[in-house]
Design a binder for these strands. Sequence first.
DNA 1: GATGAATGAGCGTTCATTCAT
DNA 2: AATGAATGAACGCTCATTCAT
Lengths: 211, 211, 211, 211
Amino acid sequence: MTAARREAQRPRETDLRTAVLDAARQQLVREGYRDLSMRDVANAVGCSVSSIYLYFAGKDELVHTLMDEGFERWYRTQMELTERGGTPAARLEAVCRAYVDFGLANPEFYEIMFMFHSDRMARYPKDLFRRARRNLELMAQLVQAYAPESVPTEDDARIRATALWATLHGIVSTIISDRLDRGIDRTRYIEGTIRYALAGVRHASPEAPRP
Amino acid sequence: MTAARREAQRPRETDLRTAVLDAARQQLVREGYRDLSMRDVANAVGCSVSSIYLYFAGKDELVHTLMDEGFERWYRTQMELTERGGTPAARLEAVCRAYVDFGLANPEFYEIMFMFHSDRMARYPKDLFRRARRNLELMAQLVQAYAPESVPTEDDARIRATALWATLHGIVSTIISDRLDRGIDRTRYIEGTIRYALAGVRHASPEAPRP
Amino acid sequence: MTAARREAQRPRETDLRTAVLDAARQQLVREGYRDLSMRDVANAVGCSVSSIYLYFAGKDELVHTLMDEGFERWYRTQMELTERGGTPAARLEAVCRAYVDFGLANPEFYEIMFMFHSDRMARYPKDLFRRARRNLELMAQLVQAYAPESVPTEDDARIRATALWATLHGIVSTIISDRLDRGIDRTRYIEGTIRYALAGVRHASPEAPRP
Amino acid sequence: MTAARREAQRPRETDLRTAVLDAARQQLVREGYRDLSMRDVANAVGCSVSSIYLYFAGKDELVHTLMDEGFERWYRTQMELTERGGTPAARLEAVCRAYVDFGLANPEFYEIMFMFHSDRMARYPKDLFRRARRNLELMAQLVQAYAPESVPTEDDARIRATALWATLHGIVSTIISDRLDRGIDRTRYIEGTIRYALAGVRHASPEAPRP
DNA sequence: GATGAATGAGCGTTCATTCAT
DNA sequence: AATGAATGAACGCTCATTCAT
């Protein structure tokens, strides 16, 4: 309660904003979006509730910042893996695994990034949204490099990237929402699903007529 | 509880229970289940809050009922298609398409079924849980019939069914949460993704070593 | 839920009123006044909530009836003991012990009878109130018989009876409200307090000047 | 918390905490503590419900604070009288009269202290409980000094103190709950009852056999 | 730059009561 | 005589937000 004590709890006195984000991120991962409470964040940081409002217009902005941070993180991870070299196949596969790892390591984070509702989505600022979309573009490039012959146009690349992402998201979200049947080996499930998704992306031709 | 009562789907005073379920379902998909408020449901229905408690012991029971309803509906659809006959391939494909159709046609049901939190999941009654699992069992049977040579054990069938489901879920949820890039042809996206998912289910071997 | 079942649970079909009173009394003793709920009473009886309103105008009337019943019971007990004969001292002492026993045996009952608030008291019907007061009159008679020389007037008898009652009430309420120090032998406490109260009633002269 | 703050007894915006306590105390005595409602307290104070939670963790803490306050007040009064000197008889008698005066002058405090339910009592914090017990200890000391020959052990002292207290409580509660018959002279009643109680404490021997 | 005090709206839930049938 | 359906008011409590200092 004393000033001294507060100083001890607060990571960097000059950057309360960072401290708030850190605390919020942790709480988000631990408790989920709905239980992310300004009060708790302030307690964790060691500052007053109203101080948070000096740096964030409200809870929405705080959450949006975290989301943006999440997209940025994922973008950087994807970037690094892309630039690390190797065959296109190896790179794409690495990215797929990294995606699943990312989602499973930060389930609640993942949830706000990819499972948030259209309602909340509507309030997500346009510029942040544009940045988030870069992730898809990057994956589309990877897909194009991976299967150039089946992806003639940029459009095709985006379709296939989305399809791939759909599966990856499926993997993560089934596990996160605890709907993976017990008795199913998680690793085999992940590996197998990634493999057939990659195979599908390369070979299946979207424009083929229905049988 | 009788068939007659269930038929009266329209929110009329004759069947408040149904009306509550309808309103709750809608609100659930609009706001996300964490924001599902008994007050809002009551307002939407046009009844008092306490009236809801005449038919549901609490918020949990209401949500669980909705979930069960969704699983039941999907189970019936899946059953019908399964029993309709045809080659295993045709049946499985029909089920996949039906899944996507089901999700897109009833986003409310869909989100309830697959996007609820593990939190609430923990309190999901055992008997309802067992019923929900029948869906997976059914799809596992279809998968086994579809690719008997690559699915030696029941366990394998469940893994592959889950993998397939992950992709289907990915398709639906990308579209539902409005994250499908504009400019991507939806039908091509759906058809293509289903096709490669089916191909993967048949051929890729989960225990094969990484390339 | 069926009519047959309800019949089994209901003591006397012809006398729902009695059944309600029985159930309410039990619940009152078990749960206390505030937790006496019409719903629970109805459940215990096996009738519908609204049926209770056929016999009682509301919760107040139900409670008032119970209170009256309590006063009546105590009056009858007091009466019996009084008429049983014996020396006035023995009779008064027996009444004192019976009072404490009564209070301790039915703590919640006792509470509504003697510890209810002026607020609730205000709604207590006049005629019932008059009947309740007979208890004091009876005790005043006993006191007069017990110590005729120190109780010249009826007024004096009532004062002393009230004083005696005050102590008895003190005994019961200290125990009931769980404020009797652990480590104090309850029997010794009760016996001792009754004895000195009786002694005081006989000898001390209220009109003596303060030292 | 400072002395200055405590002095500001009037419900002013400068000390909402005190105002809340005042209002709660009043409501408690008017309505009974089971009916003590945070809403009503807030209304009486003129603040919002949530403001109460700034100073009290919940209803329990609020009630417990009130109880502790009452015990403390009475303890201080008792202390002062004890230390003022005089013969043991005079001191004990003074304390008895002060008790009744205290109860009649502050019915709010009084009811809180002695009429709360065992229910709530079970949650009464240990440290507050210990403080409350000092009152009994103090009176036990007075009793021992007053009648040393009949109170050989500390245990006896506590029994007799409790017995005395029972009567005092009886006096106060009969008056407070408006059950003292009209036409009974209040002063004579109080004086007389105190006198016989004191006499009883000195002479009657709890272990004596029943006559 | 930071805060303590305060709030209003909302939460899930319970309850006594009413009334058409 | 009895009920099922419905309600409005109240409950304790939490939350994001504001604002004077």
